[in-house]
């Protein structure tokens, strides 16, 4: 975004299962990458601008583990914390905010019950309600199939909203759905490309650009980061307000500091911390 000194946010995402951090590759293969609180503290020291916890705990009996993780993290680490995954009701939103989350992200529940977005934004404020959208490209008509994901591809592409961790197509158009949830009060969109997630080929830039053209709330780009140049692309070409990545940070391929440096070298405004 131009015309302001606001820094682009670099956002590590931690997938949390039963209180432990894992990262899915295309949501199938899962590897364990450590304790959420320790990771959060490390990211804070490195200068991460925000953290996202995505709770992927499947079993109902273990659902409360995320509250403990959020509480312990918020007690130790004084940075913005967004929590999503399995949020089904207003009381879920309230409980997470109460534990110390700053923003709560909804995906499936928003599709099932759009009124929940409105109720949550009305009660807690738009600034803490994020709608996560998992987007998958639709097959292109005869003029050309969806093979070409390059930034120069024609932008008459469309995307469908998926729910339930990317398994269930909803029939909703991504751009229309985003407009709708913002009308209802969502303060931010976390946009994940299901086509790119886990591939390390970079964000779906046409998807980001298309969404940017139709909404004016912040967008967090997600899905596909394999190296630091992808973060730069997400901001410069995708016009994202925040860039999210998981595995490249968790497994030590790159530090947050290196990510900030790469962005700064490309002329992107970032927050520099003392260690830089």
């Amino acid at each position: 975004m131009t015309g302001s000194s606001l820094a682009v946010r670099v956002v590590p995402c931690l997938d949390v299962d039963c209180g432990r951090v894992v990262k899915g590759v295309q949501f199938v293969e899962i590897r364990d990458a450590g304790d959420p609180v320790e990771l959060a503290a490390r990211y804070d020291e490195e200068g991460a601008d925000e953290l996202v916890f995505l709770d992927i705990t499947a079993s109902h009996e273990r659902r409360d583990t995320i509250y403990d993780v959020v509480e312990r993290t918020a007690d130790e680490v004084f940075m913005p914390l967004t929590v999503g995954g399995g949020v089904r009701s207003l009381s879920d939103v309230r409980a997470l905010l109460h534990c110390g989350a700053d923003k709560v992200s909804m995906n499936t529940a928003a599709v099932d019950n759009p009124r929940l977005v409105a109720q949550a934004a009305d009660r807690f404020g738009a600034q803490c309600i994020v709608v996560a959208i998992d987007a998958r490209r639709n097959e292109q008509p005869a003029s050309g199939r969806a093979q070409d994901m390059s930034p120069t591809a024609a932008e008459d592409i469309s995307w469908t909203v998926y729910t339930h961790g990317g398994r269930t197509p909803t029939g909703l158009d991504v751009l229309g759905w985003a407009r709708e949830v913002i009308r209802l009060g969502a303060g931010e969109i976390l946009l994940t490309s299901m086509d790119r997630d886990g591939t390390k080929q970079g964000y779906d830039l046409p998807l980001l650009r298309s969404l940017r053209q139709v909404i004016d709330v912040p967008i967090i780009a997600s899905g596909g980061v394999g190296d630091l140049s992808h973060l730069v692309e997400g901001v410069v070409q995708g016009q994202a307000d925040a860039v999210l990545a998981a595995s490249i940070f968790h497994f030590g391929e790159y530090t947050i500091t290196e990510a900030k440096q790469e962005l700064a070298n490309a002329g992107v405004t970032v927050r520099r911390t003392k260690c830089m």
Partner: peptide
């Protein structure tokens, strides 16, 4: 906010 600026104003600023 204003032209080209997303609202809420969210993030780290000077």
């Amino acid at each position: 906010g204003g032209p080209g600026l997303t609202v809420p104003h969210m993030g780290w600023d000077c």
